[in-house]
Amino acid sequence: MEQKISIKKGNVQETLLLPLWGRAYETQKTNPRLIDQKAVEIVEKLDYDFSNIIKTQSMSQHGWVARSLHTDKMVLDFIQEHPEATIVNIGCGLDTTFSRIDNGKIMFYELDLPDVIALRGNFYEDSDRHRSIASSFLETEWFDEIKVRDGLLFLAGGVLYYFEEEQIKKFFIKAADHFKECDFFFDSLSPMGMKIAKKQVLKKGGMGMPMDGGWGLKPIKALEKWDTRIKVINAIPMSRGMKKGLPLKAKIVLSIPDILGVCSMVHMRIESP
């Protein structure tokens, strides 16, 4: 029997299992909204008890699937316009986006802390167009490793709200200084959303990480006040257009955060003056 791969409990890296499980669970449904066989493969190889997540995260699971669907659409639209685009997946965790969207031409970087990149090495091998970078995204020396040919898109799913606003602001400005023009696509939580996520997802899901601090964004247009080069292109409520096939009760429950602006997918662009 193949030995399973253990996961360290009690830190931010443990949270990467949540969306991974969400995609794998969805894939195995009778009528899945998302098919991600790579996520199923990874879950089966991990030595981790997912039982508490299964019991407590039925509604959050819809959010993780929706985020992946939004991201896939954004990337596919972007590479339709930029067939040889460079895409950087910030805080990639055990994300599997590349497996779903690769057009055979893009350059795709997976960026995360060294222990996460080492964990990913059990499931992915680097190639000429799919590379790993072991670094905190805040330590921006890694900018020099990014080769841009035809448009640059940064993804950051389930990442930025774990940090403080000033850290994110400085990072965006450094990106603007270095790359001049690029796009970002990420999920944001309002201050209310931060409180809900910490209580309903991290605590109930058995995540052992600290739950202090974090970045709650509202209104989303406030990003444009950080720097004149920052433009908010779009902000989509997380569950908008993602409820097809769900039970009526789930549709109602998921509509409430959308109405309150709790969680959104944000498309932000950095442009030269």
Rank of each mutant, 00 (worst) to 15 (best):
C182G: 05
D150E: 00
F78M: 09
L94G: 07
N103A: 12
D112G: 06
D177G: 07
L76H: 07
I101H: 09
M107S: 12
N89E: 06
D177K: 13
C182W: 07
A134R: 02
I101G: 07
N89M: 07
N122Q: 10
E141Q: 15
D183G: 06
N89W: 05
S188T: 11
H82Q: 02
L160P: 04
A85Q: 10
S135Y: 02
R120W: 08
S135D: 04
C182H: 14
I90F: 11
G91Q: 01
F186V: 00
L76A: 12
I173E: 09
E81V: 11
G151V: 02
K147D: 13
S136P: 09
I117Y: 04
F137P: 03
E84A: 14
L94T: 10
G193H: 07
L189V: 03
T140F: 00
K147N: 14
K147C: 11
Y161N: 03
V75R: 03
S60T: 12
I173T: 08
M192C: 01
T71W: 05
I87C: 05
I101P: 05
S99K: 12
L94S: 06
Q80S: 13
L138Q: 14
T140P: 00
G91C: 05
S190D: 01
K174R: 15
E166Q: 13
D126L: 06
H178R: 13
P191C: 11
V75E: 05
P114R: 08
L76E: 12
I168Q: 13
K73P: 02
